[in-house]
Write a protein that binds this DNA or RNA. Structure first.
Lengths: 347, 347
DNA sequence: CTGTTAGCGCATTCAG
DNA sequence: CTGAATGCGCTAACAG
């Protein structure tokens, strides 16, 4: 069933049918109505391939994510898909692990003539996305904190989020706060460590590099890092994590040592993955609002598209501290003092 | 950059370029080589819209899943996407919660001219997918255990999987085994309860309806169901679960009652979601091999497409018991007897 | 206000 | 073995 057939049945030309479908007002109400009836009763379904072929625009946005199995990404994916449905666009999803995968991904996006692309997982060769930029396809990256011609960026405001988290801990009486991060080589990992550092500063707490351990954004990494922290002569009384999976791992590690959370150690995650709430105890975490993030990515895409000069813009997303069950005063609650920390005898 | 331009540069016709791209052997090796060089240096990227428009085939398969956020589905999604990449096909992903969503999903698949569709979440109106069947688009459903013209089905063999699980428990000495299922109205839930029943029979154990509680395939449902089981005058010493999330919830519930797993109660999940392994203790579970399932779905699709008469076929997937840390002998281990069960005084 | 026409890029006839 | 011509469905430009 195509427009010509509809046109034939309605006794008009296919151009008129097209106009009716696209809501052009250059059609008599009466004609439009008549065509609409035929359209409905034939259950007409337009063929987007024709439009894409003609205009090189596909009403689809590409989404590149590093790992669908990570709940943070799958939850983002769900939000992104929902947001796209709102604006009547399709999604071209590609899961990319390595540089070669990114190349294939870019090729697929080019073939499918995407109107824009969101690149999560900020660690990629800029060169690989050159072809996209060249064809003036708007790009949005995450957490790169830089923009280019044709590329906007959405940054998560870890600085303010971690500050909120650290202040929460300090108000409970903690002054020895550790941090479990991501892969140390990754740019985003460094970003988060720096944000943690700033947060300590804002809370008037001293930064102690021995309390900062790398993880790998996954459970086993968090567990191993926690083991290292607990092996310290003077372990932290609270730990902030670069993401929730790390915090899950750390909690596991603490439990294995016979510690109770939050009685013996307080934990704060980052992301607010769905499962955080059902952990035991439920995880206190710095929520990255997924829905808002997805919308912001799309806004950023549309913004970039609109720019005459193609300049990308820097967007920023605030987090929200969600206090649940993994934070409590430290074992021997003390009034917080001006002195950076009070030495305690190792137990 | 299109084929005509390549043809011009190579001094041939676009038909020849097309033949080279598609590996037709009706081209001189020399000509083919020359064209290939131009193709490479121009970094030619074909436009699938043209092909789709011309032939109504899109090299894309639709995937309908109920909930991307559920790790079982997101892990399947990852496997499916990888399998599609192997056969050089695209994926049209739609997340469908309700009947109306399915209608929209079908419409999108029709527009995009998918060559087939995999429908997970077997609870849907058959009528909604009629348009797909009418256009002879192959369909694969999961766990419906019935086929149609143009629709094949892939069933998970819960019967053998649960039997293996129950035998494992019985060999440890359990004879009071509970079951936490899914939504009681759902067809798949009934399927699993029946499979559990058969498993008990195969293990020579009596079926006791009071030990079977509905859940909702998610953590809170499992937790609530476990609470009910533990409130029984004589609770089970082991519980099998319709999926892993339920088992997570049950484990949580048991812990909250001060029970230790597996010392006080043994737990077995179903699915083998990635996080199962990092639970504490790690979950013993009936693995549904995700990768194999994805491949099987695609095989089923291709099979259905090949059938002249369009008859669908029934496929079946075996599970694998993965024994980890949530199963152990019951508190007072006893030799299993021929008598269905030994009454113990309620504690 | 409505119809005619042309062309997006490709693969497949059919000629040569 | 190669090329010319065709049409898939749609919409913008133009003509009426």
């Amino acid at each position: 069933m195509n427009m010509r057939e509809i046109a034939r049945r309605a006794g008009v030309s296919s151009a008129t049918v097209s106009r009716v479908i696209n809501g052009s007002n250059a059609v008599t109400a009466e004609t439009a109505r008549r065509v609409q009836v035929i359209l409905d009763e034939a259950k007409f379904i337009p063929n987007p391939s024709a439009t894409t072929l003609k205009y090189g625009r596909s009403k689809t946005y590409g989404l590149v994510i590093p790992d669908i199995c990570n709940p943070y990404f799958s939850e983002f994916l769900a939000a992104f898909e929902a947001a796209l449905e709102q604006i009547d666009h399709e999604m071209l999803l590609t899961s990319v692990q390595d540089a070669e995968g990114l190349l294939r991904s870019v090729r697929r996006m080019l073939m499918r003539q995407v109107d824009g692309a969101v690149l999560m997982g900020s660690e990629f060769e800029t060169q690989a996305i050159e072809p996209l930029l060249q064809r003036r396809i708007p790009i949005v990256t995450l957490d790169r904190r830089s923009t280019d011609a044709g590329r906007s960026d959405v940054a998560i405001d870890y600085e303010s989020g971690f500050t909120e988290a650290v202040l929460h801990l300090r108000s409970l009486g903690h002054d020895r706060i550790g941090f479990i991060g991501g892969y140390p080589q990754m740019q985003t990992s460094k970003l988060r460590v720096n944000a943690f550092r700033q947060a300590l500063q804002a809370a008037d707490l001293r930064y102690d590099a021995t309390l900062v351990k790398p993880g790998n954004y996954r459970v086993p990494g968090g567990e191993a890092a926690m083991a290292q922290l607990l092996d310290l002569p003077e372990p932290p009384t609270a730990v902030l994590h670069a993401n929730d999976l790390s915090a899950f791992g750390a909690m596991l590690g603490a439990h294995k040592r016979g510690l109770q959370v939050p009685r013996d150690i307080s934990l704060i995650g980052t992301d607010d993955v769905l499962l955080s709430e059902v952990m035991h105890p439920p995880l206190t975490t710095v929520r990255i609002p997924r829905k808002r993030l997805a919308q912001l990515c799309i806004e950023a895409l549309e913004h970039t598209k609109r720019q005459e000069d193609g300049r990308g813009a820097q967007f920023s997303l605030k987090t929200e501290l969600v206090v649940r069950g993994t934070t409590a005063p430290p074992r021997q609650a003390r009034r917080s003092t001006n002195k950076p920390r009070v030495r305690r005898a190792p137990q």
